[in-house]
């Protein structure tokens, strides 16, 4: 199997640390006037997005360009998917054009893992179904480490639709490998018991106050209505029980930060005041996304 980046679960601490530390090198670049390197000059990256995405796709595109690579983005609706071509055939066609890596987002869990068995090209997972979103966890870790010396011993609350969240799974794997305490919180029907066995140091609660108590980091998840195949919870009372409001923040550590993978829904998973709160680092996450993805691209094809 070619070396790509399919998930956090299979990475060890060293590999994660290497990416995070390299991303730190790329951070200053983001505020310089000349932002472009030529490390990956002549390399070609295909961004293949089978699911709507603005921020992740743009972030990967910018990261590729800042590394000096050429990037082509394809969205599913504009490709041969709509003509009935199978995923394997589409990917084989793309692979025949000899890109150096394929960045892929797909609504089916495991789609990139399945393709990696059959393709010579390295695949970078930009989110597969409800499974993993490795670069999101990496940029989240980079964002936390910009404000904390270590992940070890941190209390991290992840709140929302955990069952359908690839962001939650990737973060759990990453944080657990570094010894953080993780509390997963959401409505019971979106919080399967088996999540506790996902990694060491994971605890579950359906009470948002308990989750936030003494937290260093509060990660809010988007309510993914598009992945709800059934009415798993009464949507009209979601905010009342699982929406993050300013008064909740008193329960957390005084310097706790609020994160969100975006796009945010003001008034659904967090109040507008929290979104604009001074310790909300949502835009830092977006900024770090580019540095982290530069590091990933360099590591995969550099």
């Amino acid at each position: 199997m070619p070396a790509g980046l399919l998930g956090i679960e299979e990475l060890d601490r060293g590999a994660i640390e290497a990416i995070l530390s390299r991303a730190k090198d790329f951070q200053p670049l983001q505020s310089q006037s000349l932002k472009k390197l030529d490390t990956l000059r002549g390399k070609m990256i295909v961004n293949l997005f089978y699911e709507a995405s603005t921020r992740t796709r743009t972030s990967f595109e910018i990261a590729a360009k800042r590394m000096g690579a050429d990037a082509v983005s394809i969205t599913a609706s504009a490709s041969s998917v709509s003509k009935g071509e199978s995923l394997v055939d589409t990917l084989n066609t793309l692979a025949a054009m000899r890109p150096d890596a394929i960045v892929m987002r797909h609504a089916a869990s495991g789609a990139p893992h399945f393709l990696a068995q059959h393709l010579p090209t390295p695949i970078i997972n930009a989110g597969d179904g409800t499974h993993e979103h490795p670069t999101q966890a990496l940029l989240d870790a980079r964002t936390i480490l910009d404000r904390r010396a270590t992940l070890e011993g941190l209390r991290v609350a992840i709140i929302g639709d955990i069952a359908h969240s690839r962001v939650a799974r990737s973060n759990v794997h990453l944080l657990s490998k570094f010894g953080a305490e993780i509390v997963l919180c959401g409505p019971a029907s979106l919080l399967p018991r088996e999540l506790e066995q996902l990694a060491a140091g994971v605890r579950l609660t359906t009470d948002i106050r308990e989750a936030i108590q003494n937290a260093d980091v509060i990660m809010m998840l988007r309510v993914q209505l598009e992945r709800q195949h059934e009415a798993s919870f009464p949507a009209n009372e979601y905010f009342q029980f699982y929406g993050l409001r300013l008064e909740h923040l008193d329960l957390a550590k005084p310097d706790a930060i609020v994160m969100h993978p975006g796009p945010i829904n003001r008034g659904r998973e967090l109040s507008s005041e929290v979104a604009d709160f001074q310790r909300s680092v949502i835009l830092n996450q977006v900024e770090n996304g580019i540095a982290v993805r530069m590091a990933v691209l360099e590591q995969v094809i550099g």
Partner: peptide, 16 residues
């Protein structure tokens, strides 16, 4: 409905 594998530790882990 919609299930692809046995509901348990692995379905949750693999996001299926």
């Amino acid at each position: 409905a919609g299930g692809d594998m046995h509901e348990g530790r692995l379905s949750v882990r693999w996001g299926l």
